[in-house]
């Protein structure tokens, strides 16, 4: 999807969130001189194109009781990454699943998954169950638990023009 200046203005205005008002798209449009119908139509297109990934409540998982998270990384053969990635991504325990480059010699892992749980034991149990169920426990893998979180904020950057 080609973004024009009006889309970018809208994206910028939306970054801070939606007004908790019975007509939030009217409120949003008023701030940038766009009528409500145009706001709704443009947002539909942005959601359709995947530029808006989700629209709704953005939870702080820590506050919901998900106090432990592990980045579980897997070293699987290159020609199996796509199939195993699809399978692990579809697991209810997994909230992110990416292929990333290995950085040899120190870092042989190419598939990154995120598993959240109420505590470390729950994450470990989820991982063990998933590895067994999906038949992937024999691939080298490690769970990197987070011990401290320094910064968690949405990246706040909007390109100045669609061409950038």
């Amino acid at each position: 999807m080609e973004l024009n200046d009006r889309d970018l203005n809208l994206i910028s205005a939306l970054c801070g969130g939606l007004a908790l008002d019975s007509r939030p798209y009217y409120v949003l449009g008023r701030a940038i001189g766009m009528d409500e119908n145009e706001v709704v139509e443009r947002l539909r297109a942005l959601r359709q194109a995947g530029i808006i990934r989700r629209l709704g409540v953005i939870v702080r998982h820590h506050e919901l009781g998900y106090k432990a998270n592990a980045m579980v990384v897997w070293d699987v053969p290159d020609d199996e990454i796509a199939e195993i990635g699809r399978r692990l991504g579809a697991c209810p325990e997994v909230s992110l699943c990416y292929r990333r480059p290995r950085r040899l010699p120190g870092w042989p892992y190419c598939l990154f998954t995120m598993i959240h749980g109420r505590d470390r034991a729950e994450v470990e149990a989820s991982l063990a169950a998933l590895a067994m169920r999906e038949g992937v426990s024999h691939y080298p893998h490690e769970a990197l638990f987070s011990t401290r979180r320094f910064k968690q904020c949405g990246a706040r950057y909007i390109p100045k023009t669609a061409a950038e």
């Binding site: 970018l8 995947g50 808006i52 953005i58």
Partner: peptide
Amino acid sequence: SGVLSRFGPMFNADRFGGHNTL
């Protein structure tokens, strides 16, 4: 109460020309 960080969009940042990495 802090359960929600925001009410609104989650963008797919790499779809609008930006770049990000881990």
